[in-house]
Write a protein that binds this DNA or RNA. Structure first.
Lengths: 189, 189
DNA sequence: TAAAAAACTTAACCTGCATTATTTTTTGTG
DNA sequence: CACAAAAAATAATGCAGGTTAAGTTTTTTA
């Protein structure tokens, strides 16, 4: 529980009452490796904060290829934002790549939280702004960098993941086939 | 001025006082065709709402190629979010593709607005969430669709722009060279 | 309104990455 | 610990889209 309070304290400060109220709406949940927090076609009714383990969010395109949009190691928030705000079925899968513990907040509870403690509007505004900046940069990188450079950037950005992830998933994140990533890695050095 | 109030009314409602205060921090600005609202290397100290005309936001990569991140026709908000929140020099250029009128809000005024009228935290949270969803979808499209399909999607999404934009700029948005777009367009039909 | 600049077209050739298919290695699970 | 499944490596072949460069049309602006 300390982890999520510290996460929030990076942008807003809470009174003891507000903190207690916030903690009261959190639901702990465990997701086993290879199990899903959310599957394509479902409505994402809760947002998640990762305490331990790691989740990944991905889509499957019409040719059956996976494209990974986000890894969520501890201290990260994750949801299918489209589905969560529209309350419609989404096309994201959110899966545990190892046994994972999260805290979830139901959409209804979050809406009430916004009303009761408006500071949380600020908190989520700020982290959404940061996500947008990161997503924008990733789009730019995909438009302007070669696969080799995108791989290098990935290594810098997620040094902790690089050794625990199958290459296949790194390929699905940087936007190349596993075969091509394998070839690239042989060429280097 | 009505346009921006309507835009805001889509997500929050203001009292007469709040409305007056909000209007008081807006600065009208005109940007002539081919002139810049913001240039690479500058700190983006204000966010803009387009009243008339159209802006485009783009980066120039290390090989000198432009990549367009956003078109902002009337009723849209635009800024270099990275530079705006970090208060550091950004790498976006925001240029008028025709004579354009915007309303700007200074970062300092926006911060005060958040404090004085917290509803605006909600407003900007919501529109940032929507931008994030759109940006995420664009990344997925770039990872999974062919250039032809991305062009078709662009036509559906910006029917009003399609005839007023140079092909070069459509190419810079969908992520192909102008030569290749030209070839594609000949092939079709 | 004419000259200059920008946008567009065309075409030959090139390359980064995909595809397909087979083999080898690693990992997870009963 | 064995063996089934997943991941990774390898390699031949293919193609979407890039590059270069020249010529043509449209737009801008003096």
């Amino acid at each position: 529980m300390q982890l999520i309070l510290k996460n929030i304290a990076r942008h807003i400060s809470l009174t003891a009452d507000e903190e207690a109220y916030f903690l009261s709406i959190l639901h702990p949940k465990k997701i086993k490796r290879k199990h899903f927090f959310l599957q394509e076609g479902e409505i994402n009714r809760q947002t998640a904060f990762v305490l331990s383990g790691t989740l990944r969010a991905y889509t499957i395109d019409e040719n059956g290829f996976e494209h990974i949009l986000q890894f969520a190691p501890p201290d990260w928030w994750i949801a299918d934002m489209y589905s969560f705000i529209a309350e419609k079925p989404g096309n994201l899968n959110i899966e545990a790549i190892e046994d994972t513990e999260v805290l979830t907040i139901q959409k209804k509870d979050l809406e009430q939280l916004y009303i009761t403690v408006p500071k949380f509007e600020r908190f989520f505004r700020i982290i959404t702004e940061k996500s947008l900046v990161a997503m924008r940069q990733r789009l730019i990188d995909n438009l302007s960098l070669t696969a080799k450079k995108r791989y290098q950037k990935f290594c810098q950005q997620y040094p902790s993941l690089i050794n625990s992830l199958p290459q296949k998933q790194i390929a699905a994140y940087i936007g190349v086939t596993p075969e091509f990533l394998s070839k690239m890695l042989k060429e280097k050095n």
